[in-house]
Structures are given as C-alpha cells and as structure tokens.
Design a protein around this nucleic acid. Structure first.
Lengths: 293, 293
DNA sequence: TGTTTGTTATAGACATGGTCTATATCTCCT
DNA sequence: AGGAGATATAGACCATGTCTATAACAAACA
C-alpha cells in the first residue's frame, strides 16, 4: 500500500510546485490558500521531509521536493492524458465500433448507416467482421464485436435483440425465363427450373428449405454460390432462378433486368435485427450507432 | 482543471482493475467492498462511461476501462516510485550532502566525520566544495551547498551558526631556527625572521594581520603559499616561520620536525563552526551530519 | 520610515462526503 | 435446493477536508 492515504495531496503538491505559489495553486484548484497550505503540510509530515522553501514571494522546491516533483509530474501528466482520452471517448471523438454481420447485410443494409456514422464521427474506427449468424453470435460472446446485425429470430437468453426492418425474400429470374413473368407458380412447378441458392448455411436458406419441407418437398439447388452478388448475377445471365432478398435487388427489379416470380404460397417475411450482449454495458460509440439504426 | 475532483478514485480504480475484483481491491486498500463499489461508480459517472463488466466472479475492464487503465497504471507506477524514493531519502538510503569549506578543514578536521558518515550511509553522495569563507557563504546563499564549515566568528543574520571545536593558531619553525626553540619572542623580534603566510584572504590571515596591527606593526610575509600543506612543508625545510593552526600540525610537533614559537602576546583562539541558512529547512542527510559533528 | 500589498501559517467551526454496517441480488457450483 | 462468493443498494455516522478570520512576515513603495 501507499504511504499517504490521499492521492489528492499529490495533485495539490503538483500545482503548488508548478505555480511556485500556494495561493496560485489554490486558485487553480478552486480551493482556498489555507487548504493548500494544510495539504502540503500533510504531505510533508507523511514523508517526514520538507518539500518547499517558504518565502514571502511564494514557495520553491527543496532538493527532495524537486525529486518528488519529477515523479509526481509524470504521474499527473498521465492522469491528464487519461481524462482527455475519456472525454474524447465520451464525445465520440475517438474510440472504435466493432460490428458483426454478413457481407450482404453490410453492403445492402448497413452501408448508408455506416457512411453517415463515419461522416458524423470520423474519429471512431469502424471494424466490420463478417460471418454467418452463429459465427456472429460467437464473436459477440467472445467480446470480439460490440454488436451484431443478423436476421431474426434469434433466441438466446444471453443476447438482447432489437428488431429492425422487415425483409421479404423471393425468387427472381432474368430475361431467359421471361415466360414466367406473369405466371403464378406452385412449388413443384418452381422446382422444375434450376434453382440457385446461397451456399453457406445462412438463415435465408434454412427458411426456404423449411418452407418447402412443410409442404412435403425437398428443395435441391442446381447451383450454390457464395455471395448475394453472384445470386443476382447468375439470375440475370439466365443460369437459373435465384432466391434473394427483394430489398437487395430493388434496383434490378426496377430496371427490368430481373423480375419476381409469384408463388401460390406466401414466403414468410424475415426480420432484421441488431443484437448485443444482455447485461453488458455498451460503448458510447455502439449506443449511438444503435440509436441511428 | 481535472474532471474528477478526487484522484483517490484512480487509486481505487487501479486496484480494482489490477485485482479484477472489487472485494480484493477493498482488501488491498483496507476499506470495505461497498466503498470500492461506490468509488468505481463515481468514476464511471464522472466520465459517463462504464469501465467494468460486473460478473458474479468479479469485474473485468471494458474496452474503455482498459484504455483508462493503461494511463492510470503509468500514473500509479510513478506515484509508487515517488513514495519509494521519499522513503529512501528519509532512511538516508539515498540523497546527497553538499558541504562547503576550505581544503585544510576538509583534510584536518572533517575527514574523520566524512569517513564515518560515508560508512554509515553509503547511499548518500557527498559533494565537497572548497572555497574561502566568503565564497562558502555565497555558495550557501545560492543554495549550492547544504552547509558550510568555516572559522568563526561569522556575523550574518541570514545564517545560522553552530560553534564547534576551538583551534589555536601559532607560529612554527623547523630545525633551521632551532635557536628559537626555548625563547619567547616579541612581535618585532618575530618580524625579523621570514614569515610564511597563507596567500589567500583567509580568516586566519586576517586574524594575525589584525593582531599585529593592534600593536602598531604591519606584518609583511616573506613567502605566501596556497595551501596549509605547503605552509608546513616550507617551515620544515627552514624557508621561514609559518603561521599555522596548531591542531593541524600536531603530528609534526610531536615528532619534533616542527616546534612552536612562543610569543609574549596571546594569539586569540579561533572557533570552528558549521553554518546553514536560517529559516531554510535542512535535508535529512544534512541534519544527520550536523548531529554527528 | 511607515504603509501597502503580497506571501504563508494558524486556529477553530462547519459540512461535505467517504466509509461503515446491514441487506439485497445475482451467478456459479456442489 | 442450498451454499459460497461476487457486486449493488440504503442509510447512518463521523472523520476530515474546506472554509473564514486572523496572524505573522517580507518586500515593494511612497
């Protein structure tokens, strides 16, 4: 343990030494001169060493006082830096924000938010970790990210989930299958065409597979690809019918390079949400981001 | 000024982070766990930032807490070093002692004390500054030495003088003037012989010059030398009669290589003393040395 | 030389706030 | 289910840090 039981004394000492005057130190510390005088005396008594020469023009350090000052000064400098840093963190002038999610969500959903956030808080360093939903959950639990953006539902008592916008998945095709443009297909009819699915174990793929299963069908994709962009590109080139999120292909639907295939069953909408660790405090940076989304 | 008005909080934070437990921090700081809990909350509130994750197994730093810790740790290390240093100074395990005086006093009077002091407190660095009495006084006033050892009297209200041992100056000669061994000389008779004096404006020389003057004589030395050793050596070789301090030639008087010349007037004894600045605190090292002398 | 203006030191009153005890709450582990 | 051990909360108390008032002193100044 320490000799003095009050580190405040070092602050007073620091200012007294720095200003060379107990009165000035008192001003700087917003206390009265007798308080400073008293504090210095306490410090001196605790060491049994005189730290200042007192004159009628102020105080000056003794040999020993100078030695003490050289250490205390460093200490105070670090404290000052620490407080600066904390203030910067609070003001979102610095810090970092680590987000987990899939690449497609980053690109099609989060990008505008990320841009706005970065514009508003250029001091915050953004870290994006892509992964599947279970991977993102693992990242969260390991403390490697501050928040995750995934498709719902997520059922995990350790996680706090905030529902965000709703997405509608659908099947789309390009010019090659123009004959289907105004038709309404049943699931078996659809299955006669080559279906393109996301290759990885994504929540979207699980959803559609389960939908088919609930009607007694087994959906086998003709083609599996590794990114949403490829799903879109393959459909446009007529390689098959892709299962995509409608909101992510709005541009292609508008300009006609893709069209949605109507089905005689409803594909349930999926919800997007953010998740964070329950009972774990968030950084200011993360809190602010969640407010935006 | 600082954000927090109590640097104590950093100490608590430091220990909480270091031990990873509020309870353990409380033990280390000899306070109770609720106090620590309260202190941490204060710190967090002052920043508006959560610093710890609380679990039922203790606490761990948040991202921001870690950042704060990296600064606070440095600060605390410097404080610990400072307290160590102060303790060492107090124990006389380190520090320095700066003494001013004439070379002859160092050699003939102070040497045994210095040796003992150095043996007892090997951590204290000794600085010896030689000079005449007025120079030593200047050194003192400029703060370049802690204490001076000089011949008295010294009259200076700024100085605090402690009388030490008494010295007796006298004239001595060697074999060459053996005829004077049992005689008692008057001042005019002495003046017929070549007199060797210290060249510099020393107090000893002033004293003897004034003594002659008070009897209406003007003492003109045949030879002037720059050190007490030369005064002795010249007298032994028969170059003249040296005015020296009896205590400094006791060895030569004992072995007969020099003898004292008796005079029909008394040379007033001179006192040796230590002087320090009045109203200026002394270092522990200096205080201890003064106690020894 | 007395006066003013600055400094630090001292004394004593007061009230802030840090610390305590007691208790609650929660998690993990047996 | 219960125990052990962690942190959080509430409220009381009193230590101590701060204040006001004043003294003492030195330097600058008129």
């Amino acid at each position: 343990m320490s000799i003095t039981n009050n580190y405040e004394l070092y602050k007073v000492f620091y200012w007294a030494a720095k200003t060379g005057s107990l009165s000035q130190a008192a001003k700087a510390l917003y206390i009265t001169q007798p308080s400073v005088s008293h504090a210095i005396k306490q410090l001196e008594d605790s060491f049994g060493i005189t730290l200042f020469y007192r004159t009628s023009r102020g105080v000056s350090l003794t040999q020993e006082g100078s030695l003490l000052y050289s250490y205390v000064e460093q200490s105070q400098i670090f404290i000052a830096l620490a407080e600066e840093k904390m203030a910067a963190l609070k003001n979102l002038d610095s810090g970092e924000l680590r987000i987990g999610g899939s690449d497609s969500l980053f690109k099609h959903f989060l990008l505008p938010y990320l841009e706005e956030y970065h514009r508003k808080y250029p001091g915050i360093r953004l870290h994006l970790n892509h992964g599947t939903t279970p991977e993102v959950i693992t990242f969260l639990k390991e403390g490697r990210i501050d928040l995750g953006v995934v498709r719902l539902p997520i059922v995990d008592p350790q996680l706090e989930v905030r529902e965000s916008i709703q997405l509608q998945d659908c099947f789309v095709a390009g010019e090659r299958y123009a004959e289907l443009r105004d038709k309404t297909l049943s699931l078996p009819e659809l299955m006669e065409y080559p279906v393109i699915l996301f290759s990885r174990n994504s929540r979207a793929r699980m959803t559609i597979t389960e939908l088919f299963q609930s009607y007694g069908h087994k959906l086998k994709p003709e083609i599996e690809v590794g990114s949403v962009d490829l799903l879109i590109e393959f459909a446009r080139r007529g390689l098959g019918i892709s299962y995509v999120t409608r909101e992510f292909v709005s541009q292609e639907l508008d300009n006609g390079s893709l069209f949605e295939i109507k089905l005689d069953v409803d594909i349930p909408p999926s919800h997007l949400g953010t998740m964070t660790m329950r009972n774990m405090p968030l950084t200011s940076a993360a809190t602010r981001f969640l407010e935006m989304v």
